[in-house]
Design a protein around this nucleic acid. Structure first.
Lengths: 178, 178
DNA sequence: CCGACTCTGAACACTCATGTTCGCGACGGT
DNA sequence: ACCGTCGCGAACATGAGTGTTCAGAGTCGG
């Protein structure tokens, strides 16, 4: 059931990102199981949504957890770990309903703090310019998000994504003014 | 009705961004009108959604339309014009259902081309580094989006937004490596 | 071979958003 | 004062998604 549940939640995330109003029947069909069976795993629609959200948080935590320190504070490793879980992050970030669920927002804040820690490590290494922490975080995540999106619709090779994110994040897209 | 319709569509955009599954009753209540009256303006839910989308496109077109050329190709003016219409852009960008509506996607592509033209003007002025056009565009828009979001929840002063977007876009957030 | 388990489609009742109609009251022009 | 227009709430019918139950079919292990 662990593997089953894993792919089920991931498929659900993809379907629900594509169409947030998708019915449970669509999710079940996409997962190749019966609607009744889906209901047996997750009694209500909210149960499923929360499960997918927690699955996303779990992956996010896993990505942020074991980021080793380094010359860049672990920035590159963080980008490498987060781009592949783009679909799940998109689902989590783009579902406003979660903003009022304490279980989720608490976990969210915790993992965000871990991400911020990486950025501040990078800052301590002198890699990052002085800027408001929330702007650093939001900018970094938005680049991850965009890169993941570009990977998904085939415009960007998965292997190129982390480099692109990192170089854009650090040096921007303007010509070097020296 | 022009003014009426204007504020109505803007309110609808905000409500629907906050909760994409909001019922028409919620939208009507937020707009301070009766559900029946809302129905008289926009017969179906889809009609309302499309109207909001076209309203967003209209604002977007207006923002992108009259960008004068300049040393930066008009980049700063574009950022200044787009940040204020953040809510409408969020609604447009975050509603997957529009991806399959030709009327909207056509207009979307057109205005996106105008935005890309500004970026390429900037590139011609030597302001932008060589990079895939879609990455330039996506990155720029995502910064606009994030800045608009930060403005909305009070973390960022509206007047500071364009500068922050532009400096991040051009030089990134890393320390200058000289 | 048999029992336990799971998945499955069919069917059901239920809720809720939707779309429509109708009659009432307010406002503005004549 | 009269009448057309407009917005409004109440009420209704409809459809779709949801959650539940049930019995049959398949698989696996004893």
């Amino acid at each position: 059931m662990s593997v089953q549940s894993r792919t089920l939640l991931d498929i659900a995330a993809e379907v629900l990102v594509t169409d947030p109003a998708a019915s449970l029947a669509q999710v079940a069909r996409a997962a190749g199981i019966g609607r009744t069976t889906l209901h047996k795993h997750y009694a209500t629609r909210d149960d499923l949504l929360y499960a997918v959200a927690h699955r996303a948080l779990e992956l996010w935590e896993g990505a942020v957890e074991s980021i080793p320190d380094g010359p860049d504070g672990g920035l590159r490793a963080l980008a490498e770990a987060m781009v592949p879980i783009g679909p799940q992050l998109e689902f989590l970030w783009r579902t406003p309903a979660f903003d009022h669920v304490v279980e989720i927002t608490d976990r969210w804040k915790a993992v965000e703090a871990r991400g911020l820690a990486v950025l501040q490590r990078a800052q301590a290494h002198g890699v990052l310019r002085t800027a408001p922490p929330w702007w650093l975080l939001q900018t970094f995540y938005s680049l991850i998000y965009v890169a993941a999106e570009c990977v998904m619709n085939g415009k960007l090779a998965p292997a190129d994504a982390p480099d692109l994110v990192l170089s854009t994040f650090l040096t921007g897209l303007g010509t070097v003014i020296a």
